[in-house]
Computed example of a mutant assay.
Amino acid sequence: MIWNEPNNKSHWDPEVDPDWSKFADTVSRTGAAIRAVNPGVTRVLGGMSPIDPMWVKRLEGHGCLDAVDVLAVHGFPLDWNLWSIHEWPNKIAEIEAVTDKPVWVTEVGVGSFGAEEVQVFGVEKTAELLIGRVPRIYWYSLFDLPQEWGATTRHREAEGSSYYRHFYMGLIRADGTPKPSLDSYAKVASEMGLMQWFHYLDPRLDDAVEWMKRLGTKKLRTGLSWADSFRPDALGWFDRQMEALQDFDTTVTFCFTPEHLGIQPHHTSAARDPQAFADFCAQMIERYAPKVATPVTETVAA
C-alpha cells in the first residue's frame, strides 16, 4: 500500500501539496518502482479517509492511477465519520462508480470509547454489510493504543473526544485483556482481516501473532515506516517484524516521511525528492517480497 489516508491532513499535509499533484507524482514513481522489482505484487493506493469519489477523479486527472491495481477506503461511521454504519454499501458504490479497479476496505472500526457493547454491534454489523461485498476487509484494530504512546494525529487533545477515541479501537485492551467484541470478531476472522500498526521495536508483536493465530486470522495489514528506516538497526527490526508475520497474507503500508527529507520537517510532508520514497519501497519489496524465478521446464522430443 502506497501511503496511508493521503486525503486526511493528519497523514498528508495539504499546505505542502494542496492539489495532491506531489502525492500523485509519488504514487506514479512508487508504483513503477514496485512493478519493476516484482510485477506480481498488488499495488494498493493508500486508503482514503474520507471516502471521496471527487478525490479519486482528481488523482485520475493527475495520471497516477495506472500505477496502482486497487483502490482502498477507510471508514469509522460510529466514531469519526458523519454517516451511518448502514451506508457502507453505498459508500463502496460511490467509489466503484468512478473506477474499474477493485475496492478494498483496508480500515474499518468501531471503538469502545462510549460502551463496549457498541463495539460488539459494530463488528457484527460491519461483517454483515461488507463480507461478500468487497474482496478484502481489515478491522482496525487488534490492540487498543496505549494512552502513554499518543495517537498519530495533527491536533491531538484539541480534538476533544475525537482524539481519545483513538485509544479504544482494539478488540483487546491495552492491559492485554480481551473485550466482548473479540468473540464477535473470532466468528468472522477467516473472512475479515486485521489492521494493526506495529511501532518501532513494538513489544506487542509476538502477542499479536499468537492472538491472530488463535483467532484464525488469515489476512493482516500493517506498515513499514520510511521515517523509521533511519532509526538505529531499523533493518533488524523490519526483519524481525516481517519474519514474525510470514504466516499471514500481509498487506504492507509504506508511509511517513523522515523529517530531514520532507519539504517541511514533518512525517506528513511530501518529500523533497519523491524518488527517494519510491526507492525505499522498492528496497523493501526486494527484501521481503522478491520476484520468484519461474522454473524452466525442459521438453525432450520423443
Rank of each mutant, 00 (worst) to 15 (best):
Y164F: 15
Q264C: 02
K101E: 09
D233S: 12
R221S: 15
C281N: 01
G31F: 14
V105R: 00
L59C: 10
V134K: 10
L261W: 12
M54N: 15
L201H: 13
R272K: 15
R133F: 02
Y140G: 11
D247L: 02
D279F: 01
V120P: 04
T153M: 07
N7I: 06
T222G: 07
E124W: 08
V105F: 04
L142E: 10
P18Q: 05
N90P: 00
P102K: 08
V110F: 10
V296H: 05
T30C: 10
F254C: 06
A36L: 05
F254K: 03
D25M: 13
P265H: 12
L82H: 14
L215V: 06
Q196K: 06
L59P: 04
P53H: 11
A127Y: 04
Q264D: 10
W104N: 11
Q275V: 01
G46T: 05
V98F: 07
A208N: 02
S112M: 04
K22N: 09
S190V: 03
A174Q: 14
F277Q: 09
M195S: 15
S190F: 02
T106R: 02
S112C: 06
T297M: 13
M54P: 00
K213P: 00
P53S: 09
W55T: 14
T222L: 08
E128L: 06
K187G: 01
A234R: 03
K179C: 10
D233F: 11
P77Y: 09
R29H: 08
F248V: 08
D19Q: 14
G46D: 01
K213V: 09
E5Y: 05
K213S: 12
G236P: 07
T257V: 10
I51A: 11
Y288K: 01
H267M: 11
G46C: 10
A234Y: 02
D144E: 07
M54F: 07
D79P: 04
S21Y: 10
N81P: 02
M48P: 00
P89L: 12
W83T: 05
E116S: 14
W3K: 10
